[in-house]
């Protein structure tokens, strides 16, 4: 039965997609393009493009896209549920362990080491997104480090606003989107 097959396939993907996002991509591609005849390589590339322009984790986007193509909305639900079940079980267990043992002094030590590392992870993600906004690619360009003017301006304005006025981040994201359309149309 196709719904069970979708569920089971995405359950395996969910169980082994450590590292989130792009790290899980080869695994998904292997399952839905090579193992199952669900998407062509071009369609899979489309899923990646869509994921870059929508909010939400790429694997859930892929699960929804594949599910819809193969078995309509029930397919989308089966695939997404399958993908989420392993995360849900494992993360809930970790949350339970964290809640129960976090006041132990040895665990406190581990957490004291993890917190600055978590800040470093977020900082690294910030650099990636900044590079993408400034240069339109994930790596630094070889020719010039001068960013494109419109994104650079938007970034500087948004950061100043966030530091001084503390507006809601969602408003800032929507505002820079609108300002982007305006500025790119003008210049």
């Amino acid at each position: 039965m196709i719904l069970l097959e979708l569920f089971w396939c995405f359950l395996q993907i969910g169980l082994f997609s450590f590292g989130g996002g792009y790290a899980a991509m080869p695994l998904i591609e292997h399952q839905v393009v090579d193992v199952h005849p669900w998407l062509s390589a071009v369609q899979f590339a489309d899923v990646i493009t869509i994921s870059e322009m929508t909010p939400g984790p790429i694997a859930i986007n892929a699960a929804t896209f594949v599910g819809t193509r193969v078995a309509g909305i029930p397919g989308a639900l089966a695939a997404t549920c399958g993908y989420i079940v392993p995360s849900f079980v494992i993360v809930t267990l970790l949350a339970w362990v964290y809640t129960r043992y976090r006041s132990l002094s040895s665990v406190q030590g581990v957490l004291a080491g993890l917190r600055p590392a978590a800040v470093a992870m977020i900082a690294s993600a910030a650099v990636t997104v900044l590079t993408l906004a400034f240069y339109g690619q994930r790596t630094l360009p070889a020719e010039t480090l001068l960013p494109r003017p419109v994104p650079a301006l938007l970034f500087a304005a948004a950061l100043l606003l966030l530091r001084w006025k503390k507006p809601h981040p969602v408003l800032v994201i929507l505002g820079t989107g609108a300002a982007g359309v305006l500025l790119f149309s003008l210049f």
């Binding site: 993600a125 997104v129 970034f155 948004a158 966030l162 994201i173």
Partner: peptide, 12 residues
């Protein structure tokens, strides 16, 4: 999307 990327970078 390009504008929003700049905003997301600022938020991060």
């Amino acid at each position: 999307l390009t504008g929003m990327m700049a905003g997301v970078a600022a938020v991060l």
